[in-house]
Design a protein around this nucleic acid. Structure first.
Lengths: 345, 345
DNA sequence: CATCGGTGTTGGAACGTTCCAACTGTCCCT
DNA sequence: AGGGACAGTTGGAACGTTCCAACACCGATG
């Protein structure tokens, strides 16, 4: 058990101190600590010993300054509460680490203003690249950022912006898979709980409308959002608005988190899932497996990994043309979707 | 729509460039950009204009180096996949921002070795303080870290280590609340799905054993873990081991994520919750509200906020004695717990 | 008219590294 | 004996900022 005495944190030793103790020059210490082959075995041993004894710790800020490189990338994530983003982040971390980069993670808390501020901070910290995992910025904002630093966008296709690469699934296709799945089960009255006013939600909504049209079915979009509570509310509205229309027999929800909320709403309304109503989510986060919810899945970690790989590639070759990678989207059928209650005409 | 031409990222302008353009010295530019009152209105205007025109962006690494301050704290988080940590992080971010600090977030991916590496990185980046949100380090490791930088630990009580503050709930009390709740409902056969081999799990397990003893009941601990899948497996084992003993009528689970897994296991076994078996989680993450799972709740965001506040306080006053803050723990009764199936003797 | 105080402004030193050109040996070759 | 190659080592410049002491200028004051 370490003693409770509070010995003052003294000034950190520098290369200079290590050099003095080892009886060599600071340059040699620098070389030795970076495993240069030009250092003799004797010097190396003395230096390592001295560094150890002093508790030397290299100063990255100084190193970054002189090298004009930070070996770090910035990652901006829309909302840490959504486990989807944690899964994407896994891939980003893995790839960054593999390339010898560390990551600076920030969140904008879904507010455009703080989002910009946080990104500004990253730029001032001189990150060498930027990964935006979902964002609320305009194309112009992105272009301005990319003029300063290579950028990769995840979950949304960017095109035509210099130095911006992107990785995303195919939202229209995904929604078609969802609609097809439900239609195959026999549903004809399928409502879509949208994700609110942002690009991804719009794409998913459009995909839904198209797919419904392709089956000759009437689309019904209920405004919602990407959180459990918004999903809950939208689902509640959709399923209880039964005075005029009959309620839908299936809900295709904008994302997984909202689908969890939708499931909760059905439970509170006393409706059986999938007996009375089917629910399908979107994203494919791990937790949905335990919850047995059908979803349109994307390879999340892989998306993060690919974005980071693209970014590293671009850091090495700034002027490479912009790339978009589209990842496979597939339906994972689980217990929350089944045939509609009574064979509707 | 911005043009696709790839104009090379040219060298970033420095204070010097701004000074030249504004026709003043670099010192004055530095003062003006930091809103010093000693700068004349005319100079200030010229400088701001020049900075704007050049797209000047201050270099934080240089600034940190000379100031010997980074205005940033490091945050280490055990596992980003657990939404509990995102909620704690909210509080940390809020407090850090309020004090004018930015945060560097890293994860160890629940592996002790990489955990140490990541923390080393933070120290090399010269963070001014460290917040550990759950960790796997030994007391000696923590003491060594705290010798370099003020440290605050969340979710675990530290005492007697110099320069380490901590914030946690009361795990023993929490488990007693859980057991009491179930006993009050009429349960006598209550199993605990543990969280694995780590301090928090041990404390919760011990709390459970004590509380059971206080009611004169036989404890039954089933080894598990903190993830959905580990919760699933442990619950499956607990509920299906019915050849010898009768299965328990209630499961008190080590954390919320595992409780979700446990719920899934019951569903797959065809058991009704709470009709056949009750489930109680631990932590109080938001998602459980939607899932209607009873849990022992802690004020997560508040824990993060308090930890950050303590840390800031300590950064200002290094030698303050160590503090531990205990936050309130309370039971949130929801739909996953109810009376046992048949009145057992 | 010399001195003072105050307001703006300035150049240089410092922060802790890395990079570079230059230096010292030592050994080998002609 | 003189030179070249090479391994090992060195001091100084640089990175972009902040801090500090000092300066120039002005009007007011004795």
């Amino acid at each position: 058990m370490p003693p409770t005495v509070t010995e003052p944190i003294r000034k950190r030793p520098t290369l200079h101190d290590v050099a003095a103790r080892a009886g060599v020059s600071k340059s040699l210490v620098s070389l030795a600590l970076r495993d240069s082959p030009k250092v003799s075995a004797a010097s190396r041993a003395a230096i390592l010993a001295a560094a150890e004894e002093l508790g030397y710790r290299p100063n990255r800020t100084a190193s970054s300054l002189v090298q004009q490189r930070t070996h770090s990338i910035g990652v901006h994530i829309l909302d840490l509460h959504n486990p989807v983003f944690a899964e994407i982040l896994d891939g980003v971390h893995e790839a960054a680490r593999r390339h010898g980069y560390s990551t600076l993670l920030v969140t904008g808390n879904a507010d455009r203003q703080t989002e910009k501020q946080e990104i500004t901070r990253l730029l001032e910290s001189r990150v060498e690249g930027l990964i935006l995992i979902a964002h609320r910025l305009s194309d112009d904002d992105i272009a301005a950022i990319a003029a300063e630093v290579p950028t990769a966008v995840v979950t949304w296709q960017m095109d035509g912006i210099a130095r911006v690469d992107s990785v995303s699934g195919d939202d229209r296709l995904g929604m078609r898979l969802g609609v097809d799945h439900l239609v195959t089960l026999g549903h004809r009255s399928i409502a879509h709980l949208s994700g609110g006013e942002n690009r991804i939600s719009h794409a998913r909504r459009d995909g839904y409308v198209e797919a419904m049209a392709a089956h000759g079915l009437e689309p019904r979009v209920i405004p919602g959002g990407f959180t459990e509570s918004q999903g809950y509310r939208a689902a509640h509205e959709a399923a209880s608005s039964s005075q005029d229309d009959p309620p839908p027999t299936a809900l295709l929800v904008a994302n997984d988190l909202a689908a969890i909320g939708a499931l909760a709403a059905m439970r509170d309304l006393g409706l059986d899932v999938p007996g009375d109503i089917s629910i399908v989510g979107y994203d494919g986060m791990r937790l949905l497996e335990a919850l047995d919810i059908t979803t349109v899945a994307q390879p999340l970690a892989d998306m993060g990994r690919q974005a980071a790989d693209l970014l590293m590639e671009r850091i090495d070759r700034l002027d490479r043309p912009s790339v978009h990678r589209r990842v496979a989207t597939e339906l994972r059928s689980r217990g929350s979707s089944g045939p509609p209650p009574s064979p509707r005409r």
